[in-house]
Design a protein around this nucleic acid. Structure first.
Ligand SMILES: [Zn+2]
Ligand SMILES: [Zn+2]
Ligand SMILES: [Zn+2]
Ligand SMILES: [Zn+2]
Lengths: 179, 179
DNA sequence: GGGCCGATGATATGATATAACACTTGAGCC
DNA sequence: GGCTCAAGTGTTATATCATATCATCGGCCC
């Protein structure tokens, strides 16, 4: 089992159940086109396929998951390095981030140009990742660093817990639970 | 080369050059003994050997680095899983942390019982890790999460930049540089 | 002693990521 | 068109990080 997978994949609830995810995807692809253009990068067929797989949910997925899904869905097989290269380009374009604590990747649905001041919240139950703005975070980190002569140029922050939907499910009466 | 190593290991300056690191080690070992005792864990010979290797510098080191150093220094070879198990125990005791962004581990020289409210600052030049207290961080993360119904139970934060010593070296006149 | 449990050993494998080099393609230039 | 160059991708191999599984050992309790 991939290290970032859940014991209960059925717990994932962001593939359309709680919102119209097609809207998320459309907005993301649109932003990706613009972002690639602005940065002089090319949103090639492979990169688009990889982005579509990552953006298919709000979860963080491993590079090898992407690879398997590409093979299963798009037909043509690709090598691990090709997936990693595509992901790297998507990261440069700012449409995909890496979840450092899980060695996995997730689509950025909340543009925040400049890599600073956002945090990822990861649900331990359903693996969903949401980004929250945290303008204070980077500033306070730089302040803390400055006290020690440390010049902070970039930072990451990741929080773990239980998301709203999973909390609601956890408090549901037992007879409403799925088997 | 291990991914977390530097291109110029000589840049490391925390192995005694800029402070009396024996003091750091003594304090850490002392704290480790107490912490293992309090938690009902045992600071076994293997765990102590692993801790000594990790604590030998303020850098983050990979599990396989530890393994190689154990083989080189202490004689007896150990399997990767044994190193990982020892590291896991040291983490539970709170004397070692994982640097998520590098898949590496570093000794905690700044006790902060409870895993909240600290951040790691990593020098891109010398790989030194310093921990800074950030009492606001976890609170603000929980506040941000609460707005979205997300209950944050733990979090990590890692900052990257250039430490004081390396900054000083960078501004030194060229004729003082090492070849 | 015998049962138990936490720690370690031993072996194998899984999971994540990159190196090196070849090939293709398209843009810019002449 | 033909040339060059750079970016992207393919192909193969390998490096790096981490865990599964079962055996064994040694202290501790009864
Ligand atoms: Zn969505
Ligand atoms: Zn984002
Ligand atoms: Zn020290
Ligand atoms: Zn610490």
């Amino acid at each position: 089992m991939r290290r970032h997978e859940l014991t209960n994949p059925a717990a994932a609830h962001t593939d359309g159940a709680s919102h119209d995810h097609a809207v998320c995807i459309d907005a993301l692809l649109d932003r990706a086109k613009h972002s690639f253009g602005e940065k002089g990068l090319k949103l090639t067929a492979l990169r688009l396929r990889v982005l579509e797989e990552i953006a298919a949910s709000h979860d963080a997925v491993g590079a090898y998951d992407v690879l398997e899904r590409l093979a299963a869905r798009s037909g043509g097989k690709v090598a691990p390095i090709s997936v990693y290269r595509a992901i790297e380009a998507l990261r440069e374009a700012g449409v995909v981030h890496r979840l450092e604590s899980r060695n996995a990747f997730f689509a950025c649905h909340a543009p925040h140009l400049g890599r600073h001041g956002h945090m990822a919240l990861v649900c331990d139950k359903c693996a969903e990742v949401v980004e929250v703005e945290a303008p204070d975070f980077h500033a306070s980190l730089q302040r803390a660093g400055r006290d020690r002569g440390f010049a902070v140029t970039s930072a990451i922050a990741e929080g773990f817990g239980v998301c709203e939907v999973c909390r609601a499910e956890a408090t549901k009466p037992a007879h409403e639970e799925q088997s």
